[in-house]
Design a protein around this nucleic acid. Structure first.
Lengths: 183, 183
DNA sequence: TAGATATAATTGATGCGTCAATCAGAAAGG
DNA sequence: CCTTTCTGATTGACGCATCAATTATATCTA
């Protein structure tokens, strides 16, 4: 009774060749986009996307300083990743780490003048590239659709992560945690 | 005459807050998707997406072997990246490198039985995950739209890479080189 | 207040990606 | 032939991501 003729009832079969093609196209294009943006950012400003995310968050923060954990949460990184990254950024003089007055375990990450200036000079070219390669490349309809597709995928991603068995669909929980990466 | 009031003539201004939001959503979602798929693949099969791409290409090749450069071109990697990756895969016994009979500089990459078996066991769960998190998450319309968006973006990406000055739009050159990553 | 536990942050190990440099062998041109 | 140039492939250095382990301080509770 359970023969596997192409009886496309959603959810029972593996993706078809066409579906796999779309999947590949989608994920590889997003990847190529990320990598092109990243390489432009790198050559124009000597910043990686990670640097950019950190500097953006700090620029927008009170006093251009933030507790390390707070920063990690804000940009959606693991603390360990941030710690390694900050070490590299500190070496380059983009940020500084100070000890925290109210909690002796804590560290405060501070934007240096160099960091602020580097970030300032990076912004416009970066946003221009986003416009050129993404916003302007798409028709207004496509742009809208892209937003909806992203929202849909994100919802599924979140619900599937909680259940992990992955059978029951949770009731659409809104989109809670957003990360900052890229302005 | 060139004041910058919101006169949305495409191509002259930086992306708006809403456009930036869509951009962030899009790129971060694609990223989250990639990372979720990759982590499932890892825990189910001890394979990275890179491993998967290499094994897929080899599985489909004549005699389960390929010249190293050929393989690199097929999956769209730099030779250097492939070389490093093959070194790691060889250590784990997934592939083997033999010297090439017809060109003494050349190397042939060969799928080992272990590699073939590991790949075989990885395929179904991986495709199931692609279905769950991507194909089935979207409506048929959205799936189509995703494919078109990817195609559009890819075209722009390719033309902009050639010109590099990036002003003139090239006439839509079809989509030449595709990479293999993920089946 | 002493001991358990939780939390902030760092560290070390390892895999992965990119770049520039290298090396050996093939091809081409004199 | 011999030298120059090109090409297949590898290497080393470094940045980046993830995981597990660690350190130091804070907090909680008996």
């Amino acid at each position: 009774m359970t023969e596997d003729t192409p009886r496309r009832q959603r959810g029972r079969h593996l993706p078809s060749a066409e579906e796999r093609r779309i999947w590949r196209d989608f994920i590889e294009t997003a990847d190529a986009l990320r990598s092109e943006l990243s390489s432009r950012l790198q050559s124009e400003s000597s910043l990686s996307p990670g640097d950019y995310a950190v500097l953006l968050a700090l620029s927008e923060s009170q006093g251009q300083r933030m507790r390390s954990s707070e920063l990690a949460a804000h940009i959606g990184w693991e603390r360990s990743r941030l710690s390694h990254h900050l070490a590299r950024m500190e070496r380059r003089g983009l940020i500084r780490r100070e000890e925290c007055a109210t909690d002796n375990r804590g560290a405060e990450v501070v934007l240096t003048p160099t960091g602020a200036e580097t970030f300032r000079r990076a912004t416009v070219p970066h946003l221009r590239a986003v416009r050129e390669l993404f916003v302007d490349a798409l028709t207004p309809d496509q742009l809208l659709a892209a937003g909806e597709i992203a929202a849909t995928l994100r919802t599924r991603l979140h619900s599937s992560r909680r259940v992990d068995a992955g059978i029951e669909d949770l009731p659409d929980s809104g989109r809670g945690d957003l990360d900052a990466e890229d302005m």
